[in-house]
Write a protein that binds this DNA or RNA. Sequence first.
DNA 1: CTGCCGTTTTGAACACGTTCAAAAATATCT
DNA 2: AGATATTTTTGAACGTGTTCAAAACGGCAG
Lengths: 218, 218
Amino acid sequence: MREKKSAETRAKILEAALELFREKGFAETSMREVANRAKVATGLAYYYFASKDVIVHDFYQKAKDDLAPLLDAAQKGKKLETRLAALISVKFKYFEPNRKFLGALMGHAADPANPLSPFAPESKEVREQDLAQFVRALEETETTVPADMAAHLPKILWMYQMGLILFWIYDRSEGQARTMKLLDASVRMVSVLIRLGSLPLMKPARKTVLELVEILEG
Amino acid sequence: MREKKSAETRAKILEAALELFREKGFAETSMREVANRAKVATGLAYYYFASKDVIVHDFYQKAKDDLAPLLDAAQKGKKLETRLAALISVKFKYFEPNRKFLGALMGHAADPANPLSPFAPESKEVREQDLAQFVRALEETETTVPADMAAHLPKILWMYQMGLILFWIYDRSEGQARTMKLLDASVRMVSVLIRLGSLPLMKPARKTVLELVEILEG
DNA sequence: CTGCCGTTTTGAACACGTTCAAAAATATCT
DNA sequence: AGATATTTTTGAACGTGTTCAAAACGGCAG
């Protein structure tokens, strides 16, 4: 009976933390507040979560599981641009209530050494599930990708998505209208770019891009 | 005589802070340590610098002044790609000793609300001097930029540079070799892109890009 | 029930960034 | 010079994330 109780306490703390993060943001919420709202001692939060950051990792994990069916449902239509827009929109919708506190996390977005970065090893699982969705979108649409690009294109699209999300997080316009515009315009541009870039004539251009991508990936 | 003394104390604190930041990084240095090394009370550091972050802003300002002549010296040659590479290399060289502690700052790079972000109003002065260098590089090289692009291209190049710097900061390869490769390859690609994009035939493509840029700039 | 052991829970403690009232040093005025 | 105002300097204090020794609890053997 100890285990169940333990799991309940853990859940209670996580819930309190996410509530507060949503209400006031990540940095503005103290661990003492989290513990208070969960009606436990400060130290107990650290018994269950090694750090404030780790709470967030749990949130990612939950998001991954929640998103899986939503993303699958978004995979329909023959046009790449609609699929891309759908995949990305799903994330916007899902994360909408947490947009503010995601901002605090994305602070460290670029640093792969930071455990909270989407590029960090800690986020590998989440990242790879997401990557798979882009692979699928490319496969199931009428897009033809040259062999030399096929291996890298999903990751390029994923990075494009991360850029959009970053923009969205800091987009202060009403209802993130600017991001919506950007999504629409850029998704079309990306599709055109892929179509044009796939022309046999474009092989040298692809070589250059690939060279770049390979340096980026190390 | 008060003013001179005051300026000396301020300088002493700034010096101590930057020393420590270089030695141990930004986050790892405490204000108490800074004050100790400067042989003053903790509170005095806050009398001269409103926050730990503000010390960094002073560092930016100093960098701006130091860099000005170096950047001017780098403005030679008729090829855009050599100028771009030169302008960016100058910054790599100059910031090399502070690479580690820049990483800590760039943590918040993407958030324009963060005072330390290169996109923040606080960094306006520095950013604009830098922008001017790209304007000059475009003017003084044999690059011909279509009228519709002229207004935006410098900012695009500046953002390209910021991306490279971000990569450089987190580049763990020996001597940042990967960044050097990336600089070389990407500078060539950027030049080609500008040349190709300037073809009259490319007007529709430019329209699309401009649409995007205008959304990005809000 | 008693004693034991591992798990869970507590709250005081540490170093941190930052603030602030009060003290010291310095300039200004009479 | 002495009194007054202003600037500079101090160090204790606050709330923060995090740690840790010790207390409370729960299941189990005798």
